[in-house]
Nucleic acid binder design. Structure first.
Lengths: 205, 205
DNA sequence: TTGGAAAAGTGAACAAGGTTCACTTTATTT
DNA sequence: AAATAAAGTGAACCTTGTTCACTTTTCCAA
């Protein structure tokens, strides 16, 4: 079945090409400029072809959001070298914030936009595996901390959710331009400062 | 100038009517169904009239977002009865979460959507007074806590931002359906549980 | 009282974007 | 080489925000 194999490969290739075109626009011009027409024209194919490969725009954005989780996951790999769980937790927060601040639109897509979740709903997928996987990485480290005697009296799951929320909240407020509401006496980046306070709290727990 | 006065009043009235129509759609059908056409038809006026009263849709959404802050502010009034600052801080979080969960679309508009901020940008308004005002209420309570000896070694401003982020993060993840990523062993609402962990931490600080 | 200006209100029309689908072109198979 | 299938196309449709030339109403001075 050489022909069928090649066909499948070609299909994969064009699928990937569409995504890379979408990705490029997404990164360079922001999500509002990432239209189907723009994606098609960026890769010199017609609108119709894009729709032969993806059911709709939500599917494209979902695929992009999955790529984002893969990248975030690969950033997390360095954390394996940090053996002490509390240190690892602190480093994880730093990596997470850095990812969010360096890939604002991607972060927004992964954790704020409706599109990827709407896509899951449309295909009757109950689970959000991308998010779940990342959350599990956090939860494992939090459990390690509990085993080491940190976070006395806390429950791993809701505590992990709280920690995620802290960091996500800061990134989200920053990306959605709500940090305008915070008067800074200090010229340092508010997210950095907020994370500094977070670290101080961890040292007490 | 009785006539001019009445004119001004009528103008105010229609302005308010447009907003109430928008509000109704917003609450009942969600933001995606709150189109200019739908607003106009809900109050039996034409599209053109809506545009005589508001420059564009962002201005309408900004006005709605301001109403939201007024309501959140009025929910905060009960907190004045709580004299002990740490207790007040805990109660404030509870009120905030309750507001967010009961007015999801409004919360989203206030803290997530681009529209209100885009409106401010368009009129060259640097300040986000609505957010700033609410943040100041929090900051005052956090400062009171510091004065009472809580939060030793912390800075009021970034600490307030961190606390806000914690609570906002939980609400935001819930509203944007990212709590799907959290496997619950316990049937209780994850935001409630996360806030429970937050309270435990406050008791240690 | 009334004529004309100003204010209020209208809705057709445009642009942009997601989506569909009948059609053309290319590739494969027999 | 013809028949069939797969790949690709883009005009056209729908919805939504927005504009603006036009109509209707209101107001005040002559």
């Amino acid at each position: 079945m050489t022909t069928a194999d090649r066909k499948a490969r070609e299909r994969e290739d064009l699928s990937a090409l569409i995504l890379s075109g979408a990705r490029k626009l997404f990164v360079e011009k922001g999500i509002e400029h990432t239209t189907i027409r723009a994606i098609a024209s960026a890769i010199d194919y017609s609108i119709g072809t894009v729709y032969k490969y993806f059911k709709n725009k939500n599917e494209i954005l979902h695929a992009l959001h999955t790529q984002g989780f893969q990248e975030l996951g690969s950033q997390f790999i360095v954390l394996r070298t940090v053996k002490e769980p509390m240190e690892r937790l602190k480093a994880m927060g730093k990596v997470y914030i850095q990812f969010a601040m360096e890939h604002r639109d991607m972060y927004d897509l992964m954790f704020n936009l409706k599109a990827p979740i709407d896509f899951l709903d449309a295909i009757n997928e109950e689970e959000w595996n991308e998010g779940k996987g990342t959350f599990d990485v956090l939860k494992t480290t939090v459990k390690d901390c509990l085993d080491k005697g940190y976070f006395q009296g806390h429950e791993p799951e809701p505590l992990s959710f709280l920690i995620w929320s802290c960091v996500h909240g800061m990134c989200s407020l920053e990306i959605r331009e709500r940090t305008k509401g915070v008067n800074l006496n200090n010229p340092v980046n508010i997210v950095e400062q907020g994370y500094g306070e977070f670290l101080k709290i961890l040292d007490k727990l």
